[in-house]
Design a protein around this nucleic acid. Structure first.
Lengths: 188, 188
DNA sequence: ACCGGAAACCTAGCAACGCTAGAACACTAA
DNA sequence: TTAGTGTTCTAGCGTTGCTAGGTTTCCGGT
């Protein structure tokens, strides 16, 4: 029967999701260093080699976590920007949503923006969710006089820089609110 | 004799430098993933365990590379800011020097600002060169009305964000000059 | 109902990793 | 010359990502 093989394919797809979710959970709990193929296999209650029937390797699993995280970040940005009047308020809402995501899901954030390089980013075949995220950031900024996109890149860089330097303990965590207000002054 | 043991200590110190330099070279040539204790030992023409008579572990070697890199970056920033009139020109000079360093020594830059977390950063006992670097960045900015340091943190975050996102292929490399001019507009 | 073939899955193992114990060596001081 | 102190090496431990090969399970046709 055809439907039977279809069901099996659905089950396989479910298991791929299961693996990605487990990897993300494990990374959030104990950091990416703790995400080994053995521990991951144990958590999903399968043997190690099944991972490789779904993903080309460990990096591909990290990539999958990154893609899922990008989709979630996009959703948060959209929600934050939606009910904010344009200008300073929108910039603040976007920045705050961005930082909140980075703080709430540090491992996912790492997978998205510091760990993997396997995903296409600044090209046409980048994940749609990524372009959407970028568009949300563009929306809150004043219309670019120069080459469009570059201002958004700088805005994104500032958000990313703050997120990653704060997360790695390289900036004083107690001054986060102040940094946020400076970002609003600069880009709002 | 005392002088003999002193000479031996000098030789040991030389070898520690040799190890750090070799680690940095290897990392710049082939990336940090290629820097294994075995390859590093082979390059300095000693056996693996000698590394551990100088450093607590591989992470400590990376930290040493980071410290050396920070000193070099500080020097470059100082030179760039020194002969630049205050204001937009100084901001541009500092930003350009920062990006140039990140591009010229990507592995050292990684060691300094993305890889290791073993070094104290935003505390009083941070390496002096690091505080000096921070001071150089502070100099080029307009006197802070709010809490001093926070504006510098945001400026640094922007530079770092651009450097790291560009280096990992997450931003269009051909728009670097444009991003630089936007940075000058924002902070100058 | 049964059996052949294919798909799915696991056990076992490889090379390389960071790191360490303990033997072998070299060199200084009496 | 010898005792003793450091220095350096060989060998090996546990863990990593990944894979080969055999075993099991299950679908599809007679």
């Amino acid at each position: 029967m055809v439907s039977i093989s279809e069901r099996r394919q659905r089950e396989l797809a479910k298991r791929a999701e299961l693996i990605v979710d487990a990897a993300r959970e494990l990374a959030e709990e104990q950091g990416w260093d703790a995400v080994t193929t053995r521990r991951l296999a144990e958590r999903v209650e399968y043997s190690q080699p099944v991972l490789y029937s779904h993903f080309a390797g460990k990096d591909a699993i990290v990539d999958a976590v990154a893609v899922a995280g990008i989709a979630e970040l996009t959703e948060r940005l959209r929600a934050a920007v939606a009910d904010a009047s344009p200008g300073r308020e929108a910039v603040g809402a976007a920045a705050r949503a961005y930082f909140t995501f980075a703080v709430d899901h540090p491992a996912a954030y790492q997978a998205m923006f510091t760990l993997t390089t396997g995903l296409p980013f600044a090209t046409d075949d980048a994940p749609q969710a990524l372009k959407d995220s970028f568009d949300e950031l563009t929306k809150v900024l004043p219309p670019a006089s120069k080459n469009p996109g570059s201002l958004t890149e700088v805005f994104w860089s500032t958000l990313h820089g703050i997120a990653v330097l704060a997360a790695s303990g390289r900036m004083r965590p107690e001054h986060q609110e102040e940094r946020l207000s400076i970002v609003i002054d600069l880009f709002g």
